[in-house]
Design a protein around this nucleic acid. Structure first.
Lengths: 249, 249
DNA sequence: AAAATTTGTCTATTGATATAGACAACTATA
DNA sequence: TATAGTTGTCTATATCAATAGACAAATTTT
């Protein structure tokens, strides 16, 4: 919605409650810059009129966002925007988690949550160019910036070639550094498939989201410069906190 | 969610009704291949048990998807999947609407909905490298495949350089062909920023979606091979029908 | 033909969502 | 200090969402 006024997109009987729709709209307005950071929101009565609902419905929406840490309401003064900007996450053939986010957040982490060795599913085997059922190492990681989860990835590696990469990840906290121990000094993102959906229960817990939130999902294959697949990964990003910047290679 | 079972992600009191969440889950199961095309869904009682809800709640979800044209219910026989897989929409520096979809859909269209000349907003001016307030031509288009809307784009061009491109678009129905008339034989996608959000009222109408649906949004700048910006565009894709495939160049 | 399976319809009840109005509590300002 | 503007709380009512149970209608299987 650029260059024109957005319509009052409140739909009744849609299966999504009005307060949830309004909360999403407010989030959107903040993300787009209609409601500036640290500034006061329009008063509840004004919002109620704008969206064509009762004041109490607006209050429910605001309560949800206060709970979420996006807004702070002060009796007698108004309701204020606490945080707004989305992280811009770069994606290209040479994207690394840590490098692209420089300057956007004061604190960046990649945490290894879990690792396991297991037979490859059909999709994973295809992505890595292995026989179906070959053993692969699965790494579950979460990326954080300024203390907030901004990504949740599941990565698979050939267990034969990268035996022990789980330990390296636990130690270094970096995929790039871990791969270097196996003689992979450089790697490229060969392909990425992107989709979006509602967060499921796992996403809600992993990314600290509320039900109804949206996640961006990428499926990627990383390869060595000579084209040999080394990693297959699915990454989920909370759409309310992250946008993906596709960079030319 | 690859390689492991997805949790029963039904959340109560979330502002999203259970039937809507279950409808989304069923859509996801279809997209992922858990429910094959033309096959019967599990019976309502089984689904109710799986999701931990009443049979009537499942029926509400199914009714919504029947309304949507995704399922067909037949008394005494079962409920069947009509259509499933998402269009895979390629994005790269040389992506054109028509070329990448070959073989995926039998019918592809790009329709000009509206055009106007107007002063550039700050964002558009920045994207095109023009002074703010310069006149730009805005083109509103919709992409369809097999009779279903799969994209909805707003594109801006420098009004001075591309005067009459609206007429060319109306005539040819192709951005590439229209640009060719202005001596632009080749162009590249310089940058793309990607995000996701709930569909607003305009999206619902434009893309024939239901409230609560998700749209993928891309912001792109197209440039000539020597780096001169020629088009700034925002495109919205229905996430339930489209995935974006980021291609290496 | 009978039984089992599955979707369709109806009634009834409970809890969440939304509206409406009134007033209290707090803040900033005239 | 008084007033206007704002958020917070309360009561009441109506509608939507979800559960529960029973049975009808259509189809497939035995």
């Amino acid at each position: 919605m650029i260059g024109r006024q957005m319509a009052n997109s409140i739909e009744r009987r849609s299966g999504v409650s009005l307060w949830r729709q309004i909360a999403d709209q407010i989030l959107h307005s903040i993300a787009v810059g209609d409601f500036a950071e640290h500034a006061a929101l329009p008063p509840e009565v004004a919002l109620a009129e704008r969206y064509g609902v009762n004041r109490h419905t607006v209050r429910s929406a605001i309560a949800a966002l206060v709970q979420e840490g996006v807004l702070r309401a002060e009796q007698g003064r108004g309701t204020f925007v606490l945080s707004r900007k989305r992280l811009s996450y770069p994606i290209g053939t040479r994207t690394r988690f840590s490098t692209g986010l420089q300057g956007q957040a004061s604190e960046r982490l990649s945490i290894l949550l879990e690792s396991a060795v297991e037979p490859a599913s059909r999709r994973v085997a295809e992505g890595l160019g292995l026989a179906k059922g070959s053993n692969v190492i699965r790494l579950e990681t979460r990326g954080e910036a300024d203390g907030q989860p901004v990504s949740r990835a599941t990565g698979w590696f050939d267990a034969k070639r990268f035996a022990g990469i789980d330990a390296a990840m636990a130690e270094t906290g970096s995929v790039t550094a871990s791969l270097a121990r196996f003689g992979v000094s450089d790697y490229l993102r060969q392909s990425t498939v992107l989709s979006a959906r509602h967060a499921d229960a796992a996403d809600l817990a992993d990314l600290d989201l509320r039900p109804g939130a949206i996640v961006l999902v990428t499926l990627a294959v990383n390869v060595t410069p000579d084209g040999q697949p080394i990693q297959f990964a699915e990454t989920r990003f909370p759409a309310e906190r992250v946008e993906l910047k596709l960079s030319a290679l």
